[in-house]
Design a protein around this nucleic acid. Structure first.
Lengths: 134, 134
DNA sequence: GACGTTATCGCAAGTTGTCGCAATAGTCGA
DNA sequence: TCGACTATTGCGACAACTTGCGATAACGTC
């Protein structure tokens, strides 16, 4: 992987490695802040901005992706984990994962009708969950 | 409308009226910051936080809604304008509106399978547009 | 290995939005 | 119209990023 990064004219730094390690260890939908905190616990000299910039760089390089669950925070994860959709309840905040297969018909339709290649795992679908709807 | 607001135990203030007026005048998907700026041009004593709080209050009251187009900024509009979906290209940033009808089959399916009442107009669908896909 | 190039870093300052709080001012009932 | 109640405001502080910049340190080349 380090070689792959170098072959793209980027560099493998201690900081970048630490961000990858932290992502490896973290729970699935983690935040940049959480990663920064976990790294700074051991390496306080590493600036949060470095973590933010590395997540972005690793995303460009294809090792990392982000999704949006609730409205504000960006969630990060390794690119090699299985993709899935998200349902988030606007009332109680509960989160639910759904297989991409469920979203596939819409993706197909958008591709056919609009030529648009949708990434339906990128943003959660907001709505009201079964319990709150009652 | 003022009466309706009062009947819900809320109040009609100068600031709230100004936010509504600004929304009326603004282009469709405007931002809180833009509204704050337009109000403060004439009324510099009105704090931005007041604008943010009023948008939230007016949303609770049902006069205003927000959507998320790109990743960061919240876009606001009056609740009485027609709902529609959004396609946003991750490469070129272009935005496209699509009729809710296109998204309805997915909404139906989520309701049937998961009991989840999806609001598919709330977040834009991110992907790659026809031009950028070539 | 040494060297030059330049991606990346740490830091400080800037943005954008949120929150707690004391002061203010709509609203309602008398 | 007056007074009490309390929603709302402005302000200052804070939180969560983002950005510009000079210094540092990976990397390719020799």
């Amino acid at each position: 992987m380090a070689d792959d990064i170098r072959s793209k004219g980027r560099r493998m730094t201690v900081q970048r490695r630490l961000v990858l390690d932290a992502l490896q260890r973290a729970r699935h939908h983690t935040t940049a802040e959480e990663i920064a905190r976990s790294i700074r616990a051991r390496h306080p000299q590493i600036d949060p901005s470095t973590v933010y910039r590395n997540l972005e760089a690793l995303e460009e390089l294809g090792y990392v992706t982000h999704t949006h669950l609730d409205d504000r925070v960006t969630r990060w994860h390794r690119a090699d984990v299985a993709q899935h959709g998200h349902l988030v309840c606007r009332r109680c905040g509960s989160e639910q994962e759904i297989p991409l297969r469920t979203l596939e018909p819409l993706a197909r339709r958008l591709r056919a009708d609009e030529g648009f290649h949708a990434d339906l795992a990128h943003s959660a679908i907001v709505g009201v969950c079964r319990e709150c709807a009652r």
